[in-house]
């Protein structure tokens, strides 16, 4: 690894100053897991890392007083979420996703903000936050803006974040009556990067899919909402025919990319199969709940 400087500001304003606004070799650092991999592989040679670990404004997570939202500070680690009974109660899909995300040591340090800012379309949580309807609060010298999680990503490793901007926290709505499930479809080992990631949320009324939220990742260049498939399912009674139509709609609206974990044709078939399975899974869960 090349030589570098490290700074550990305690105030957001100091972090903005250190980061500057020129694209270059100065980067913020959350848990550092993604940065360290890139630095060790010499893919990225930062001149300076601005660690965010001492900035209190970026930490903590809690349920709002009216129980409608959960605010999660950008520096919250995956292990903190995984072990939280509050998250398990209100966002069980997050707890479920942690079970097959990396390993204990990575989860102990990887952060919610770093994970989102990284922009890797293979990551497991971005489609989950997107399907849940989370919003991301971005702060910088010029003030703050709030962006829906699904609009944070522009493409492969590309986000709307400008140099000097930081993810401060995310706000995740608690949605009573909905059930979510994240299908991590791996083709090698269970904890490998997914060939296809699919987060499915359903609000069921008996056998009818009253409302639905579908976000695809890993097989596409960024987490992508399957709008046509959602439209095909909304208000429809669960049936194999309805699921097949939704899968057709999904395949028509996205461009599936092949990679080392599966060809495009294979991933198209995975989407067809797992979309149906995931929706049946959440519908059955709702029926018994």
């Amino acid at each position: 690894m090349a030589a570098l400087e490290i700074a550990e500001p305690e105030k957001l304003d100091d972090a903005y100053t250190m980061l500057g606004t020129e694209e270059g070799s100065i980067r913020p650092m959350g848990g550092g897991t993604a940065l360290m991999l890139m630095m060790k592989a010499q893919l990225f040679k930062p001149s300076k890392l601005v660690s965010l670990r001492k900035i209190e404004a970026l930490t903590g997570f809690s349920l709002s007083v009216d129980a409608s939202h959960i605010r999660i500070g950008a520096m919250t680690t995956f292990s903190e979420l995984e072990q939280s009974p509050m998250i398990a109660q209100h966002l069980p899909v997050v707890t479920q996703t942690m079970k097959t995300l990396a390993n204990v040591r990575v989860r102990n340090v990887a952060t919610v903000g770093g994970n989102l800012a990284h922009g890797d379309p293979h990551l497991d949580l971005p489609p989950v936050w997107s399907a849940l309807g989370a919003s991301v609060r971005i702060v910088g010298v010029d003030g703050e803006r709030v962006v829906p999680a699904e609009e944070l990503f522009l493409g492969y490793y590309e986000t709307v974040l400008a140099q000097g901007e930081l993810i401060a926290d995310i706000s995740v709505p608690v949605r009573p009556g909905w059930r979510f499930f994240y299908a991590k479809v791996t083709t090698r080992a269970e904890h490998d990067w997914p060939a296809l990631g699919l987060c499915v949320g359903v609000r069921a009324e008996g056998e009818v899919i009253a409302d639905v939220s579908l976000v695809l990742s890993a097989a596409v260049d960024k987490p992508t909402r399957l709008k046509s498939a959602e439209a095909a399912l909304r208000g429809v009674a669960l049936s194999d025919a309805a699921l097949a139509m939704a899968a057709d709609a999904a395949l028509a609206e996205v461009h599936i990319e092949g990679d080392g974990r599966g060809s495009a044709a294979y991933k198209q078939q995975l989407l067809r199969v797992h979309l149906g399975r995931a929706i049946k899974h959440v519908m059955q869960g709702s029926a018994s709940a």
Binding site: T33, M36, L37, S51, R53, S79, N103, R105, V106
Partner: peptide, 26 residues
């Protein structure tokens, strides 16, 4: 050297981390 194998496991304040992916600085 990538956080995958666990050969470099140490604990920091009681929490397991990959020593290969963590900077001594912290």
């Amino acid at each position: 050297g990538q956080g995958l194998c666990g050969c470099c496991t140490v604990t920091v304040d009681g929490m397991a981390v990959s020593g290969c992916l963590s900077l001594a600085w912290f």
